[in-house]
């Protein structure tokens, strides 16, 4: 029996791209939340945290409607950018970013809130801009939080199923990630392949979490 490795590569690709983009999106969002005094802050926090409690199928259903080429947003994207977000890899990336956003934002926000404001102030009085302060003082001092955010986002993206099924379907090489492949193998009664896929995911998830705890212990010691 030859196992199709494509779902595994696709899953790792999706998780890597999602995590990288989440890092770029999540840090500014967390920065805003950590410093915000606006009365809209709780609203924004609630929206970002929605994927924690909402069934993935609900999120997937709304995204499916929004991305559909017959609706405003989907039409706009497909006409102006030739971007097809339904049943495509790009759509999975967008969905995963929304789905895993709280897993990036929450640890980073907590890290930013725990850092004494005098560090930031000291950097300003030494003539450093906000950006330089962020890159050289703030972010290096919340490494454990950044690492936690990245690993949780990566692992959470690997584990998603309902959302992928709703907006991605089950297209080989396009949207068939491991979790979908397992469902597919079980449906076609190929239990052997389902076993292998499941076991790979189990080991992957465990080793990711183990490495984050080991690394965090070392990082905390280093300070």
């Amino acid at each position: 029996m030859a196992l199709d490795w494509q779902p595994i590569w696709l899953t790792l690709q999706l998780a890597t791209v999602t995590t990288a983009l989440l890092l770029i999106i999540g840090i500014p969002v967390a920065l805003w939340l950590a410093n915000a005094t606006s009365r809209f802050k709780p609203v924004v926090e609630a929206i970002i945290s929605l994927p924690l409690v909402l069934p993935p199928s609900v999120l997937g259903f709304y995204l499916l409607l929004a991305f559909s080429p017959s609706r405003a947003l989907g039409k706009f994207l497909s006409e102006n950018f030739d971007l097809q977000l339904v049943f495509s890899f790009a759509g999975l990336v967008v969905g995963s970013i929304i789905y895993s956003l709280p897993f990036m934002v929450q640890p980073v926000q907590a890290g930013l809130e725990a850092i004494p404001s005098s560090l930031k102030e000291a950097s300003y009085t030494l003539g450093k801009s906000k950006l330089e302060t962020l890159l050289k003082v703030i972010l290096p001092n919340i490494k454990p939080s950044l690492l936690t955010g990245m690993v949780l986002s990566f692992a959470h993206t690997i584990g998603e199923f309902g959302l992928v099924l709703m907006i991605g379907g089950n297209i080989p090489d396009q949207t068939r990630v491991v979790s979908i492949a397992i469902y597919h193998e079980v449906e076609t009664l190929d239990y052997a392949s389902a076993h292998i896929y499941s076991f790979i995911l189990l080991i992957l998830a465990f080793s990711i979490l183990l490495s984050v705890y080991l690394l965090n212990k070392r990082l905390v010691k280093a300070f």
Partner: peptide, 14 residues
């Protein structure tokens, strides 16, 4: 252009 010494020193731990 001032020098500021903070009560908690505010040294960069990294």
């Amino acid at each position: 252009n001032i020098g500021f010494v903070f009560q908690d020193y505010a040294l960069f731990p990294n």
